[in-house]
């Protein structure tokens, strides 16, 4: 009886494991398509977090593009599970060098730490294009390399949103910023963009704290902020996930009607909130185009059709009026 019970439990456990493996197997299948065809250039797309909707969109865009241009190049798309896992990304790039790909399009997990390994790749004769998160200019200079950057200007995007917000406020109104992870380059740029526009419009930034890109953390931070600043007029969030948390906090505090919320990234949930009027505006960096632009640019360089230099991708303001 005992033995039966144990084996019963084991059977259930094995079954559950098997199901998990099957599920993840289904998801993993897509990865395995890129058999190398001779003659075609092989482009490696080294991504940041696979857990982030933004990068997911970016990667999907690249895969779609490759599917439509099967004859032009092969794509090897790789990402790291955690946005901050610099080591893993470092290893990924080295793997790509070992596989002798023709070009690497990289969204660096860290704007300084990934410069060295990118230089290794260039020394190995690989074309490197930097997307999304721009390499640190000083570090590039120290290493004596120049790597072309293709991507959005986060600071400009944030400025666009904040300028739109300024139109709804009066000079002297108090606003607060919810930052992303304080050490991340795009988080810093977005914060600066918000600050540029708010200062220019003579608003008062009374508070700025990090919620690490997280919804539930943003809820707690915003909840505390609105208690502290009874006359707060607007909250600028460095991404939409945190904007969702901000809305939840404001709703719970009964302040949703007198505090405006600005987001960034244009995720679908944020669009719903804009329709409801809970979020004022967000910013679309056209994630699906960033990686594609980077790949096209890399192919151009390979063919000698372009000289390496920075290239900015589109950044658009999105308001309730734009969605229908």
């Amino acid at each position: 009886m005992d033995r039966l019970r144990v084996s019963g439990i084991r059977a259930v456990a094995v079954g559950a494991l098997a199901m998990g493996v099957m599920l993840s197997g289904c998801a993993g299948k897509k990865e395995q398509k890129d058999a190398a065809a001779p003659g075609k250039p092989r482009v490696a797309l080294v991504m940041k977090s696979l857990a982030n909707e933004f990068f997911k969109t970016m990667e999907d865009g690249a895969r779609n593009h490759q599917r439509q241009h099967l004859d032009q190049y092969d794509l090897i798309a790789q990402g790291i599970p955690d946005e901050r896992d610099i080591n893993r990304q470092h290893d990924l790039v080295q793997q790509m060098i070992a596989q002798k790909v023709d070009a690497i399009v990289i969204a660096p997990a860290d704007s300084k730490a990934m410069v060295g390994v990118s230089k290794e790749a260039m020394d190995a004769g690989i074309v490197v294009v930097n997307i999304d998160n721009k390499f640190d200019a000083d570090t590039l200079a120290q290493e004596g390399v120049s790597i072309p950057f293709v991507g959005p200007d986060n600071r400009k995007g944030a400025r666009l949103a904040a300028e739109y917000l300024a139109q709804k406020l009066r000079p002297g109104d108090k606003v607060a910023i919810i930052e992303g992870i304080p050490t991340a380059f795009n988080a810093i740029m977005r914060k600066r963009g918000f600050e540029d526009a708010m200062t220019a419009a003579r608003m008062v930034i009374v508070d700025s704290q990090s919620a690490h890109w997280e919804t539930s953390e943003a809820e707690k931070v915003v909840s505390g902020m609105v208690s502290r600043h009874a006359d707060l007029k607007a909250i600028l969030c460095a991404n939409d996930s945190m904007a969702l948390g901000a809305v939840a906090a404001l709703r719970s505090a009964g302040r949703l009607d007198d505090v405006l919320v600005v987001g960034f990234d244009n995720i679908s949930a944020a669009q719903e909130y804009m329709k409801e009027g809970a979020i004022l505006c967000t910013v679309d960096q056209h994630a699906d185009q960033i990686a594609v632009e980077g790949i096209i640019y890399a192919l151009d360089i390979l063919e000698g059709a372009a000289t390496p230099q920075d290239k900015e991708t589109r950044v658009d303001l999105v308001t309730a009026g734009d969605i229908e």
Binding site: G20, S24, L50, E53, D240, A269
Partner: peptide, 30 residues
Amino acid sequence: WRLPSFIVTLAMLQAARGLTHIVTGQQTQY
């Protein structure tokens, strides 16, 4: 299997997170 729960649940920490990404297609559900 008399495994330490530290290890089993550490594995589950990864596995459940992975399943979450698969289930949501990495999109925030509103």
